[in-house]
Write a protein that binds this DNA or RNA. Structure first.
Length: 417
DNA sequence: CTTCCACAGGAACCAGCGGACC
DNA sequence: GGTCCGCTGGTTCCTGTGGAAG
């Protein structure tokens, strides 16, 4: 069979086997359902807080916090969409802008998105931050409206860049003559407040809404709701759903993770042509999600980070794990660079790369003091070595390195004995 | 008690890029 | 066309550190 036959077989079987999903979109993170189970209280609170804008008055700044997958974003989007509907109905001059700060990445891009929302076009680079902000203010003040800026995952931006952006935004009303602006900050990090300037904090958290993690039974309700919409009748029963909820609750009550599990499990079932979703599908989905996350992270690593990780891998694989410290990893990394024909980065930079690998969860590090023998960092792989091997084997530049053992490694081995 | 190792990690700075402004 | 700007991805220089060895 040639490859085009294979593909058309795959496509046709997908078209034939739609007996699992009725609508898989409802299991995606960005789907905002018509009802938010166990978030009625928060939705009501948020609604009360933003309601004054319908009368043309500025509402309080709001600070929303809770861990990932606790429904903050969904609740906020839900409230804003209802607010916009009402505003249209009553002809209230309300504008809202929803920005994900982590996606935007920099203050500049956050400001430029805010500018877009008030109908001002700014180039994607080239202007001074102050200039972009001035244009935003002018654009905002050119008509009379109440503007609500929602900054989702604002903690990510502040930790990286400081709170200049928040400071400017919380003070924006002082310079507006016709319009009013309110700020909603959404944070995944409960300790985020500690990073903030007290002036920003007091101004931003005029009102606060806390989202607690869901427990297993609440997750179950959410999943049941969505499963009814997502799957055909009798595809999924309570058992697998309960398992999904339990697994996600064990993490930290993350609804996003629970929905992912259910969606991937559904896809697995669909692919094998099953008519019912079983607990085994959920278990497999759990493994699949983890594997995909890791493989994806590995593939997207810059080349130098890959070499660093590869050094960690080689050291962990060898018998000399106690030697897996920054200095040795750096030496090994330098040798790999030489073999690849590229010049190595400095140790300071590599130390930074190791920290980045730690942050994305590919390695595990621990600063250790060895007295006379200095202070260093022990680095272990926190993922299955096989995944590293498999992913790097298909990388042209790295696969060549897999075939021969670096000299430095044999030196370490003799050193250890 | 002092010394000293082998780094950690902060701060300042730099180069190159794409782009706006005058 | 020169100048300014922000961003990325580095480098250089530096101070700090906990505990084994002397």
């Amino acid at each position: 069979m040639n490859s085009s036959d294979v593909l058309s077989g795959v496509f046709e079987s997908i078209l034939r086997t739609n007996h699992v999903f009725r609508n898989r979109e409802v299991l995606r993170h960005d789907y905002v359902p018509e009802t938010l189970p166990h978030r009625e209280e928060q939705v009501r609170l948020l609604g009360e807080m933003v309601a004054p804008v319908l009368k043309g008055e500025r509402c309080s700044n709001i600070f929303v916090y809770g861990k990932t997958g606790t429904g903050k974003t969904a609740a906020m989007k839900y409230v804003l969409s209802k607010l916009s509907e009402k505003a249209q109905e009553f002809n209230a001059p309300v504008k809202v802008c929803f920005v994900n700060c982590r996606m935007a990445g920099t203050e500049y891009r956050v400001f430029s998105l805010l500018c877009d929302a008030v109908g001002v076009h700014v180039p994607f680079t080239g202007l001074a931050l102050g200039e972009v902000f001035d244009r935003f203010k002018r654009g905002l003040d050119s008509h009379r409206h109440v503007f609500i800026a929602v900054l989702d995952e604002v903690d990510a931006l502040v930790k990286q860049r400081g709170d200049v952006l928040l400071y400017e935004l919380t003070r924006v009303n002082e310079t507006l003559s016709r319009s009013g602006a309110a700020l909603v900050g959404i944070s995944n990090d409960l300790r985020f407040k500690e990073f903030l300037d007290p002036r920003v904090l007091s101004s931003l958290s005029e009102e606060e809404v806390v989202f607690k993690p869901y427990d297993a039974s609440e997750l179950e309700d959410i999943l049941l709701d969505r499963a009814k919409m997502a799957f055909h009748e009798n595809v999924v029963s309570e058992g697998p759903i309960r398992l999904c909820a339990a697994l996600a609750a064990a993490e930290h009550g993350d609804a996003r993770r629970a929905l992912d599990l259910l969606r991937v499990a559904g896809e697995l079932a669909e692919r094998e042509g099953a008519f019912k979703l079983g607990e085994l599908h959920i278990r497999h989905a759990e493994k699949r999600i983890e594997h995909d996350r890791v493989a994806e992270a590995l593939r997207n690593l810059p080349f130098h980070s890959k070499l660093v990780l590869f050094s960690v891998y080689l050291l962990c694989r060898s018998q000399v794990q106690q030697l897996s410290v920054t200095g040795n990893i750096y030496e090994l990394y330098c040798e790999l660079c030489a073999q690849s024909g590229i010049s190595p980065l400095t140790q300071r930079r590599v130390s930074g790369l190791i920290n980045e690998l730690d942050v994305i969860g590919l390695v595990n590090t621990q600063v250790v003091n060895m007295g006379r023998y200095g202070r260093t960092k022990k680095i272990r792989l926190s993922i299955a070595p096989k995944v590293v091997m498999d992913t790097f084997a298909v990388d042209n530049r790295l696969s060549r390195l897999l075939t021969h053992s670096p000299k430095q490694l044999t030196d370490f081995s003799t050193l250890a004995h």
